[in-house]
Design a protein around this nucleic acid. Sequence first.
RNA 1: GGAGAGGUGACCGAGUGGCUUAAGGUGCACGCCUGCUAAGCGUGUGUAGGGUAACACCUACCGAGGGUUCGAAUCCCUCCCUCUCCGCCA
Length: 422
Amino acid sequence: MLDMKFIREHPEEVKAAVKNKGEKADVALMLDLDEERRRLIQEADELKAERNTVSREIGQARKEGRDAAEAIARMKTVSDTISGLDARLKDVEQRIHDIMIRIPNMPHESVPVGGEAENRVVKTWGDIPEFDFTVEPHWDIGPRLNILDFDRGARLSGSNFVTFRGAGAALERALINLMLDLHCREHGFTEVSVPFIVRRDMMFGTGQLPKLEEDMYHIEADDLFLIPTAEVPVTNLHRDEMLDGDRLPLRYTAYTPCFRREAGSYGSDTRGLMRIHQFDKVEMVKIVRPEDSWDELETLLNSAEKVLQLLELPYRVLMLATGDLSFAAAKCYDIEVWAPGIERWLEVSSCSNFLDFQARRMNLRFKRERGAKPEYVHTLNGSGLALPRTVIAIIEHYQTDEGTIVVPEVLRKYMGVEAIKG
RNA sequence: GGAGAGGUGACCGAGUGGCUUAAGGUGCACGCCUGCUAAGCGUGUGUAGGGUAACACCUACCGAGGGUUCGAAUCCCUCCCUCUCCGCCA
């Protein structure tokens, strides 16, 4: 959520942000309603002040045995007037709220304006490998080595659910351990293990709701949602808190499965492991002082990149244009790993700075010192990394002409083998 | 799932319709006192909104939302959460 004061003072910039992000929200109408709101508050508050004063006098009069019937009758009509004003105020505030929650975060000034085509490659790492044999895509290698089972995944839960088996399952587990160890031991994160099912408010807090309701698995009986990313429970850990400034920054990492209905996605990316309804991910979340968030975004990106560097997989980093930015993000880097079997760059991480947008939605503030004014914190998160697409890259990058997969050096101590031979 | 007890400020905790403008305490800040320390004394110490050039001032907030009343932390209704016991269960 944006600050109403900011919107009042910068209406044209906010309207531009709504447009550039491809959202729909009537900012002008909201500002009109905001003026009406303030008029109603002023009117009602004056009457309430009168009512408070006179009611106190009525109590005093009663105590002294004087008659207060006239004042009581007068205050009854005042109360009725107040009720009417309050009802109008409530309606106006609801309408303001409905627009406000659909206004996206402002893109940072460094973010290119435009759609996907304007995404900017800001870095590449490693060389795209040349093979002297015909490379296979992972959806052929995996089933042949009996480490990926697409058919039985679908049998259990439908299309785009997958089963990992044997060394495939071990590879997933090894990657999770590698990433958690790296982020905890080298990057200063604290590991947390959180619920995978959360309340509606949590989805609102990080900005998935109201926009993405159709993309999530919803448990109707309890009005709970399966998390689409660990961002949701981890960022919300401290919601409604007033943190001491000296506790910041907070840096958390968590492994969780992620559940996505992918309601709006069509055929092209759905083969193999590219877009599945349930996948594993290690996520990093930071809760920081406002002045630190841009530096923290860069180190967050570095922490995610480090995983691919250790795995020795070539990748590139994109700065997303406004049209590709998520609703809550001010700026976002995507990391894409090269998958030689399918000859594609695959997104394995998004590292975003949300500024105070999520903090405002989840009421998460801090005080620099005792007695200081409360301020909203800044929040960030980044995948570190999403597992299935990392597995695709490993399978395809480390395939051999004998049809086996070499286990990346850094994973060998976790897997106990040097190659996957089926 | 059943029964019971609870939810009040940074924290503890009192408060069954109007001297509550949330007592008292702890913590914290400032001041006084003191050779120093400790103790003691005094003053102050929440959030949000409105308002102001800035103050002042006003309104709301005692888990959430409704209701009764001239007036609600207090009475009524609905819901949420926490704890204890029982049942079931990995």
